[in-house]
Computed example of a mutant assay.
Amino acid sequence: MFRSRILWCATGIVIAAQAASATSAVTSECRLLELAYKVTKAQQDTAFSDILVDCPGYESWTFEMTTRDNSLAFREALNAQKPYKVEKGTETAKILFQRMITRGVPVEIAQALVETRAFDNAVAELEK
């Protein structure tokens, strides 16, 4: 019984550490997405709320992109020219770059955001 309590406590610590790490990764990615949303809104006067849906503080936001918009964004993400940093970077960097575009960030803005510290931090947190 004592042994099972130790195991249970150790398991709880591991799960708590994983949850904290996941929360940190989500927070870092959402900081990048907030920046993407602000830049998109400033440059184009509109930005889809999809960029920030499910991020902390934006839980009440809903998806605005139509199925057609989503399909086009997905195709754009697959066909977008990847910046050198993404092309030569990790799989996480490639996924994050494509995820920005599929959420509604224009390709040009996503390409520019790859060079920011917010992108580097999000990649680093997601790779932990």
Rank of each mutant, 00 (worst) to 15 (best):
V53F: 05
M100R: 02
C55R: 07
R103E: 00
E76V: 01
S28V: 10
F74V: 07
N79L: 09
L78N: 11
V39N: 12
N79F: 08
S71E: 10
A93R: 03
E29K: 13
N79K: 08
V53E: 10
V39D: 13
T67R: 04
S60I: 08
Y58N: 13
G104K: 00
Y84H: 07
S49A: 10
G89V: 00
M100G: 02
Q44T: 14
S49F: 09
F63E: 04
C55Q: 14
F63W: 07
S71I: 06
D45W: 14
I95Q: 06
T46M: 14
Q81T: 06
G104T: 01
A42K: 14
V105S: 01
R31G: 15
V105Q: 01
W61Y: 09
L33V: 15
T90I: 01
D50N: 04
K82H: 03
E59R: 11
N79Q: 13
A36N: 15
A77Y: 04
I101W: 02
Y84V: 04
L35V: 14
E91S: 04
A36D: 12
K94V: 02
D50P: 08
R31K: 13
T46F: 15
Q43P: 10
F97H: 00
T67W: 05
F74H: 12
I101Q: 02
A73P: 08
R68F: 08
S60F: 07
Y37D: 12
T90N: 05
R75H: 11
E76P: 07
P83F: 01
I95D: 06
E87I: 05
K38M: 14
T62V: 05
P83G: 02
I51Q: 12
R103Q: 00
E91K: 08
T102A: 01
P83D: 01
L96I: 02
A73I: 03
A47S: 11
G104I: 00
T67P: 13
F97D: 01
G57E: 09
A77D: 05
D50M: 02
V86K: 00
L52I: 12
M100E: 02
Y84N: 07
S49N: 12
R99H: 06
A93C: 05
K94E: 06
